[in-house]
Amino acid sequence: DKIAVPDVPEGEHRLQYSYSLWFMQRGRGSVSSATSDYEDQIKHVGAFSSVEQFWSYYCHIAHPSDLPPHCDIHVFKMGIKPMWEDTANKDGGKWIVRLRKEISSRSWENLLLAMLGEQFIVGNEICGAVISVRPTEDIVSIWNRTASNDSIVGKIRDTLQRILQLPSQTIMEYKAHDQSLKDKSSF
């Protein structure tokens, strides 16, 4: 199940990294933390290497405000599965931002553009970004490789605050994936 890295045709604008797009709809009522179940539920939608390829996907996928609750959209660098157990993620963590429904689609777009455009300036630390559509709020998160690196984690927070232009009362929370594994909860 190797996913091919898309070529960048002449005239298109190459991104620093190639990315994969994943979609997940959590089974209603069935609460399971088993890795295999998670892998079964998450579907690879496509991959892109250029700005133009990104927009062609983005303009065709449903936006968060159009999705039913319990859907997740993941955009991860190619080669990194959007799972805690992946080698790129196992020592990592994520910033979690809870958003009102009215602003979540725009915030998600801003987060994606900042990630694809390399606005975080933390080398290869960023793994990917997720939006989780929930009944009363949406949650965006950005994953990085090294949860123990305070300066990287702080820098990601500062960039996130700037690009999302969040109201000052917005709660941001950092969670290491090994903690998520221990307490079996993501948020």
Partner: peptide, 21 residues
């Protein structure tokens, strides 16, 4: 090495006029 950086405005311009490159 050199990193390929785009700001939000540049990315939005490429969405709005994909053939004006």
């Amino acid at each position: 090495g050199t990193r390929i950086i785009y700001d939000r405005k540049m990315l939005l311009q490429l969405r709005d006029s994909p053939y004006s490159r």
